[in-house]
């Protein structure tokens, strides 16, 4: 079974679910953008996120850090020409696909390339090298993004249900808020 969702829903739900699983707002923000991008352009974003959640330990938090480690590596690459990040344990492509695209736009080539690979593929190391941006990539990505914004993106219904359940945990029960004397009904 499949369900059609809007890209922003993937962002919102991954963010909330990841917050509920302990990530801070900045890590959850970035992870949500990465997963949504991957779901639209490569597929397998939600599946990769679910795999991380199902894994033991801090896999989700560690994976969410990877895009930020890439910014550090980019500084090194632009200073020395190359950089390498070893990822132990390996992380799914879904958590860094958008960052790879961003690097490419700034003239940093990444190996392995994400082209043609689903988000669940694992990446054990990433090599960065100063190069030339792919002049066709932006148009290709923009077209697919526009299509997803216009028509939605089709995702696995079971994964969506799982995600929705997790994201609901981010919300706080009305009864808890009432007990905590939430503002909103007071006088001026």
């Amino acid at each position: 079974m499949a369900v059609t969702v809007a890209p922003r829903e993937v962002v919102d739900e991954i963010h909330r679910a990841s917050r509920a699983l302990g990530l801070n707002a900045d890590l959850a923000d970035r992870l949500a953008v990465e997963i949504a991008f991957c779901e639209v352009h490569h597929g397998g974003g939600l599946a990769a996120w679910a795999d991380l959640v199902a894994a033991d330990g801090d896999r989700l938090a560690d994976a969410a850090h990877v895009p930020f480690r890439m910014t550090g590596a980019e500084v090194e690459a632009r200073t020395t020409g190359t950089a390498r990040i070893d990822l132990e344990p390996a992380v799914p492509l879904a958590v860094l696909a958008r960052s790879i695209r961003d690097l490419d736009r700034r003239g940093i080539c990444c190996t392995p390339s994400p082209d043609g690979r689903p988000g669940t593929d694992l990446v054990a190391a990433l090599d960065l090298a100063v190069g030339d941006p792919d002049p066709t990539a932006d148009a290709r990505i923009a077209e697919r993004s526009q299509d997803a914004l216009n028509h939605g993106v089709t995702v696995d219904a079971d994964l969506w249900r799982l995600l929705r359940g997790r994201s609901h945990d981010f919300l706080v029960a009305e009864s808890v808020l009432d007990a905590a004397h939430v503002e909103g009904e007071g006088g001026i």
Partner: peptide, 9 residues
Amino acid sequence: GNGKFGMRS
């Protein structure tokens, strides 16, 4: 609007 609940972005 804007993509909520499956609507158009």
